[in-house]
Design a protein around this nucleic acid. Sequence first.
RNA 1: GCGCCAUUGGUGAAGUGGUUAACACGCUAGUUUGUGGCACUAGUAUGCAAGAGUUCGAUUCUCUUAUGACGCCCCA
Length: 456
Amino acid sequence: MIQKQKGCNDIIGREAKVWKYVDSVIDAAMEKYNYNYIRTPLFEATELFHRGIGDTTDIVTKETYDFEDRGGRKITLRPEGTAGVVRSYIENKMYGDANQPVKVYYNGTMYRYERPQSGRDRELTQFGMEVLGSDDPLTDAEVISLAVNIYKMLGLKEIKVNINSLGDKESRDNYRKALLDYFKPHIKNFCEDCQERYEKNPLRILDCKVDSENEILKNAPKTIDYLNEDSKNIFDKVKDYLDILGVSYEVNPNVVRGLDYYNHTVFEIEAKVEGFGSNNVIGAGGRYNGLVSQLDGPETPCVGFACGVGRLVQALELEQVKLPIVENIDLFLMYVNEEEKKYAAYLSQELRMAGFIVDTEYTGRSLKAQFKQADRLNAKFTVVLNSEDLNNNEVKIKNNKTKEEETISLDVLIYYLDENCKEDEYDLEDDGCDCGCCGNHSEEGHECCGKCHHSN
RNA sequence: GCGCCAUUGGUGAAGUGGUUAACACGCUAGUUUGUGGCACUAGUAUGCAAGAGUUCGAUUCUCUUAUGACGCCCCA
């Protein structure tokens, strides 16, 4: 048997509906903030990621899917979304667009050559947004609040925003130097990995798991103490705007993104869900003012955010968030003989065109088994087609919930369904909630009926 | 890249170096001349991830590979 590739997943059944729903919420939110959907290729020239992400760490050298195509070109499956968006921004000369800044969002699969473990797969889906062409701290705040609002609209309750600032290049360099000086006399007492990090990526010592309780680590210099005047002002503005947008956050000096291209604002969003362990960071982002020019574009300030959809779905499941997912059909058509079957085929087509969700029997099962199938499909109504009834231009329709059966004229079937199914749909969307399902259920002081899909 | 544990029908699983691989759910059919969901009866893995080895004999022991779970490295 041919199995799926390591770290890849088939998303099927109810879970697939959850993904579809999450996608629809993302689309709706992005539309409100006026971010435009962008699709870029799944694979790009390897060089894009080498120059974009930088080859300082293991990431680009060991953890991407690289291959040569038949023409000998070096290709890499995209491991993240930003590099492709920036490439497209430059190639399509979006810096010349009348509308500035350029606000885009993406939602698609990424590929990372890693050993799978909890919350990490080789094929993963990320959505994210980028604002290119503005250094206004309001864009930093807007990106963070948009991310937070998407989580809230989905009904995620316990989320925490950690922000930090790395400052501009000068601040970053000063900080890095201070950090190296600080750790120099102590590093030999740290774990092996940290000793290596000291050489390769000293900022990451700050979130070492082994040495996290080490007093020396706890008292390490903080990025925000090394911000120069400009950087400090920018960070203060970002915090101001976040307050105005109603986003609660915590300044966490240990948030340091691994890549070189980040400067100024960096942030991570955690889902505080029981059983999520160390994989509770569901989204992260920051400002990357140097990336566009690094990829041969004009000097362009940018800020962005990305979120792993898999982890997000996992968080929704762990929090047992109720989602408005339709798992029923309007009508199941049953029959026994060939004549009735033909009519079932005809009628199902007509009703589908009229807007109803209709299914019928395809496996030659007994009537008894067909009823079971109707139950399994959660059919609101069932019809057993009967030659005699059909000759009288009639049909017996049964409400599968109340078990009441009525004989109605075929001519009014559509109106009958229209009336009775519409009501059901209204119930479903409304969920009996009077509060308007505003997505603010995690806000303090907001009262909820407790019946809608945002509550447990 | 490193480590650790696992893999038995459609599903949850029990089990053993030796004949027909428990049990339950599900599914299909019947009891019910075309109205189910209950009940009862019957059927439902020539098969224990794949390949190789040890053995008279392997689902069981050994090795290799694949996949899954969880750690480490790394984390875009």
